[in-house]
Design a protein around this nucleic acid. Structure first.
Length: 550
RNA sequence: UGGGGUGUCGCCAAGCGGUAAGGCACCGGGUUUUGAUCCCGGCAUACGCAGGUUCGAAUCCUGCCACCCCAGCCA
């Protein structure tokens, strides 16, 4: 399964390592801003950075890019650390903060000032915007652009010393207001923010911007390959400019790859926030969300997510993966590892008319092909529940379930024959009266009867009532957009059913199951007696008369 | 309409001048006490389009087209 990944980034690293004078080590970093929850798109970056570090015998940092005190909090740093660890990557001893480098960053700013490469600009935010130019027109120089190094040094020190209110001055790089790359038009390096920072408190009132911070932190941590997403391509010249004008000894290189896109969901923080705020979902860990917290609660395993990211690949192409690929990864990870159980989603009562009435206990393996997983006791009795979908009055050709007069095997138990259908006043089928074949017990069947198929069931006297949360894609459209976000929500993204589960699975500590013939389920970590459907089983059954539509 | 990117099967994705890997999906068939799993087989004369170079081009050149990103004191 674990084919060695090879992609343009790893190929680049191979080339770098092959250079005679090049570095022998590979150091990477995953640099989230602690201003929200991680989602499966971040998982791609995490797998890439930590995966590469591991493969090349290097190491990776989890670095919090916390340069904007207004957006960040400890709640998020804790959630992010937990999510990365849950995904299966060891970050102990390698968790860092951009804010931990504030003093070094300040020294770097001073160096640029001394070299005449940065200046304190006293234009207002609106003035800076107005003089930046446009996509097609160059900007104009700030009137403060030619302040002397001494003047700049003095002003910058006073900015730090809290002498000025927010917005009055910024430190800018002195590059080129006519550059076709807007990021090079004297970008802001530091701004004044009288705000408490989650990590350093009130120690600072000036905060460095992303462009100034990121490259320097990379260099300070001796990052060799700084992997980020495509929207930063335009920032690479600035990343390089800052490092080229500083006397740091490390020289990391930035390489960009495309974000992971997934159909029928949204990944942007803004849109996810709306779903949470407007109550479309129940919180950041709603099992329908692509957040790692949501996927975890749904029951998706870290292994499945890692496999998904590996299969998705790493390129520079925009992409939108089908949810089918994720589901495939979920099923293939759970198939061998998960115990089986009998659970009924839409119960239909079955009375065994010839049953003596005594209760019986059968034994069934937790997993047919994995005897080492052991067995469980399976109560059997005169009244059972089966799924309503497993019975029909008028069976289509090749129907392998129950119908009037037909024989069907109850999984791990006996063969039954449907003799009578009891219909309630409302016309709904209320009960089936069946005969069971006492000599047909699973494993010691001497009845000679060939049943039409096998169905799942639960003995009524021992059935544990459970809530089954059947999750489906959150949006009915492939690529939901902000404009019609709420309208595009799939009204059936969550269907709750009151079903029954066999006692050995309902109690006990097992968390993940395959409910046979139904799907993979996860015991909800907070709601009592509730199981979340992680993924249904593949179903290639299609009545000949009614073709399944896509 | 400036700059930076990307275009190979429905969705991903190999390919790096020598004659289109693989996965998912889909379609057949086999095994099966889960219509699951598993196993076999099928699935791009064709690489955005048009020219050109070459014995030979998805790979090189030229032009065009489409899509994505950029005008935060966000990251």
């Amino acid at each position: 399964m674990a084919e060695p990944a090879t992609d343009f980034i790893r190929q680049q690293i191979d080339r770098d390592l092959a250079k005679p004078d090049g570095s022998r080590e590979v150091i990477t970093r995953f640099p989230p801003e602690p201003n929200g929850y991680l989602h499966i798109g971040h998982a791609k970056s995490i797998c890439l950075n930590f995966g590469i570090a591991e493969e090349y015998g290097g190491h990776a940092y989890l670095r919090f890019d916390d340069t904007n005190p207004l957006a960040e909090s400890d709640e998020y740093v804790e959630a992010i650390e937990r999510d990365v660890a849950w995904l299966g990557f060891d970050v102990s001893g390698r968790v860092t903060f951009a804010s931990g480098y504030f003093e070094a960053l300040y020294e770097c700013a001073l160096e640029l000032i001394r070299k005449g490469k940065a200046f304190v600009c006293s234009l207002s935010q609106a003035e800076i915007r107005a003089t930046r130019g446009t996509l097609t027109e160059p900007g104009t120089n700030s009137p403060y652009r030619d302040r002397t190094a001494d003047e700049n040094q003095d002003l910058f020190a006073r900015m730090r010393a809290s002498e000025f209110p927010d917005g009055t001055h910024v430190l800018r790089a002195r590059i080129d207001m006519a550059s076709p790359n807007l990021n090079m038009r004297d970008p802001v390096l530091y701004r004044i923010r009288h705000a408490a920072h989650h990590n350093v408190g009130e120690a600072w009132v000036i905060y460095p911007t992303y462009d100034f911070t990121h490259c320097i932190c990379d260099a300070l941590e001796n990052i060799t390959h700084s992997l980020c997403t495509l929207e930063f391509e335009d920032h690479r010249p600035l990343y390089d400019w800052v490092l080229d004008n500083l006397s740091l000894n490390a020289r990391p290189q930035q390489i960009e790859f495309s974000r992971l896109g997934l159909e029928h969901t949204v990944m942007s923080k803004r849109l996810l926030q709306r779903l949470v705020d407007e109550g479309v979902v129940d919180g950041w860990d709603d099992p329908r969300l692509p957040t790692l917290a949501g996927l975890r609660r749904r029951g998706v395993t870290p292994g499945a997510i890692r496999d998904f990211c590996r299969r998705a690949g790493v390129t520079k192409q925009d992409n939108q993966l089908e949810v089918e690929l994720l589901e495939f990864c979920v099923r293939s990870d759970l198939e061998d590892s998960t115990p089986r159980a009998l659970g009924v989603v839409k119960p239909l009562k079955v009375r065994l008319t010839n049953h003596p009435g005594s209760e019986e206990t059968l034994e069934a393996p937790w997993h047919q092909r994995r005897p080492e997983m052991g067995t469980r006791r399976l109560p059997f009795g005169p009244e059972l529940y089966i799924d309503r979908d497993d019975f029909t009055f008028s069976p289509p050709p090749k129907w392998k379930r129950l119908s009037p007069g037909a024989h069907v095997r109850l999984r791990y138990a006996y063969i039954i024959r449907c003799d009578e259908v009891v219909t309630g006043a409302d016309g709904e089928i209320s009960e089936l009266r069946c005969a069971y074949l006492p000599d047909s017990r699973s494993g010691s069947d001497t009845s000679g009867v060939k049943p039409a198929g096998v169905i799942h069931w639960v003995a009524a006297h021992a059935a544990e009532p459970v809530q089954l949360r059947l999750y489906d894609r959150l949006f009915r459209v492939r690529n939901p957009k902000g404009g019609s976000l709420i309208d595009d929500v799939n009204p059936a993204s969550l269907v709750t059913a009151s079903g029954f589960l066999e006692p050995a699975a309902a109690t006990g500590g097992k968390t993940h199951f395959q409910f046979e013939r139904v799907g993979y389920f996860h015991r909800d970590p907070v709601l009592h007696r509730t199981f979340n459907r992680i993924a249904s089983l593949r179903d290639s059954w299609r009545p000949a008369t009614a073709p399944k539509c896509a």
